[in-house]
Design a protein around this nucleic acid. Structure first.
Lengths: 205, 205
DNA sequence: AGCATAACCGGACTTTACCCCGTTTATATT
DNA sequence: AATATAAACGGGGTAAAGTCCGGTTATGCT
């Protein structure tokens, strides 16, 4: 008569059905508003009202304004992650780690540029714990590929963080919005080439 | 009888004396509050009141909340910059560029860790033009040293941005506040070693 | 099915960033 | 010294973020 121990410690409990529905509803509405009016018209009040829900609900779901954008990105990241875990090489498995690493960086920066508005809005200086899980994906994947390369490096975790930062931060923090908007294509090209060269240099035996 | 053309186009005019005094006053007050009560008790109203100035003044001086922290950092950066421009080697001039590059990264990460609270508060996701001038210093200096190394690299500017990001972003975005607070010393060591190794690898002939 | 309870919901309330514009003041010119 | 003017000041006003808590509802157990 012991209960099925599925909530295996740590998964406190499955999300309630109405909660799931509301989250979907909120994310969908957020995307609509984003498409129609841009990032800064997306206020918590407006979102709640348009989704026909209370403001409290919005906050319980996402915690903070930046949290909404983090959730949106996580959502988009799922399909991106598919391409990495089971898509065709060199992005997916099958190619040599070095090629995958280069391909990953190029795909990732394209992704970040494509979602630049959301991605930047997800950065929140006030939260003590930095941003969201955004970079976890990159850090883990880059870390894994680095491990496969068996480089002679003392602290692979630190290297993974540094490379992740080199890949993502220019688009999050350092390139001016103007550069990204006016000439996204050129920026993407330079970034892609730069990444390739950086990785080649770092990973030389 | 033509006026002395000192405001040489671009320096629209010298700042008025009272404005200078008020800015100093505000920065000093901000530091006091920061030391006493931490970052998030530093509100615009509280700062204005404590400095015996109007709110409007605060905003004209700094534009935004994040702007205050950017100004504080810029202030601290001046003495840091001295060490680089005219301090003893290897940080200052005189040492080979590779050594200076490594030394710079280590000094810079120590600086960022020491000022972690302010630095993070200076990051503002809502402003379209990224952060402040914070990273300009790093990008320029790293760019200069890279140029001196005459590496065989296609796009040195991109490399400079990437390395700057690898240096700064972990401390701005990616390391959790917990790691930085609980074990700042260890974090600093790992970062410093990691930087050294990264630079060595990137700059191999 | 009925019940206990934990999770969820809503929206009024508080706090805070940021704007605006009539008033005051420093500075350059005569 | 008097004056013109551009800049700086102040503080009340707006809108948006984030908090709270009494009422409601889904879910698991009997």
């Amino acid at each position: 008569m012991d209960r099925p121990v599925l909530p295996l410690l740590g998964a406190p409990r499955a999300e309630r059905a109405d909660a799931v529905r509301n989250r979907r509803q909120l994310l969908a509405t957020a995307r609509e508003m984003l498409a129609e009016q841009g990032v800064d018209k997306l206020t918590m009040d407006a979102l709640a009202e348009r989704a026909c829900l209370g403001k409290g609900t919005v906050y319980r779901r996402f915690g903070t304004r930046a949290g909404i954008f983090q959730a949106l990105i996580e959502d988009d990241e799922r399909v991106f992650q598919e391409r990495i875990l089971s898509g065709p090489p060199p992005l997916g498995p099958g190619a040599p780690p070095l090629d995958r690493l280069i391909a990953y960086g190029q795909a990732r920066s394209a992704f970040l540029i494509e979602h630049r508005e959301i991605v930047r809005a997800a950065v929140d200086g006030r939260q003590p714990v930095p941003a969201g899980t955004e970079m976890v994906l990159s850090r883990m994947h880059i870390g894994m590929l680095l491990r496969q390369l068996s480089l002679d490096v003392a602290d692979l975790d630190v290297l993974a963080i540094q490379l992740t930062a080199a890949l993502e931060a220019p688009l999050l923090l350092y390139l001016s919005a103007a550069e990204l908007i006016e000439d996204a294509v050129r920026t993407e090209e330079r970034t892609a080439r730069g990444w390739q060269e950086l990785i080649r240099r770092v990973c030389r035996p």
